[in-house]
Amino acid sequence: MPPEAEASTCGDTRPGPRLRRTRLKPCARDVRRILADLCADWRGQGVPDALIDRAELVLAEALNNVVEHAQRDRPDGTIELHSETRDDGLDLWLFDDGAPMPGDTVPQGDLPDTASRAARTPEGGFGWYLIRSLADDLTYARLPGGNLLRMRLREPGR
């Protein structure tokens, strides 16, 4: 049984890439806790607020997707998150040992129809749309025993 959370950081005292590895349980409360930790780390590293805001939302959507789909009904499943702080932005890697994406591919993430009011307004389906809108690069691979999702966020102007 892995520990509840594991984090390691290296290279904090000098410029250049900084890598943080975290393991979390597939539950929404753990996702919230990890996001708070990561955002505090990024702030401490001087990552611009606008980039932190984008990364927080992208990660929330990707992690919650794993919790609600890939690791649904798998309380013992694990999610591993690597965050690399680079000079030009953030690289985020998510590995989970859950079920594959439908069709072994990342959903297209089209915007649900919001043209109609009230009764027909969709309550879901915005997650992948937000990830695709906010991440500069998205790669998915189905590996033996799990899913690997890489998301890159570049700082504008760099």
């Binding site: 929404a28 929330a60 919650n64 879901g124 937000l130």
Partner: peptide
Amino acid sequence: DSSGLGAVVAAMK
């Protein structure tokens, strides 16, 4: 997040 957004839409409905 999108779950929160969905909850606000549910409130409207």
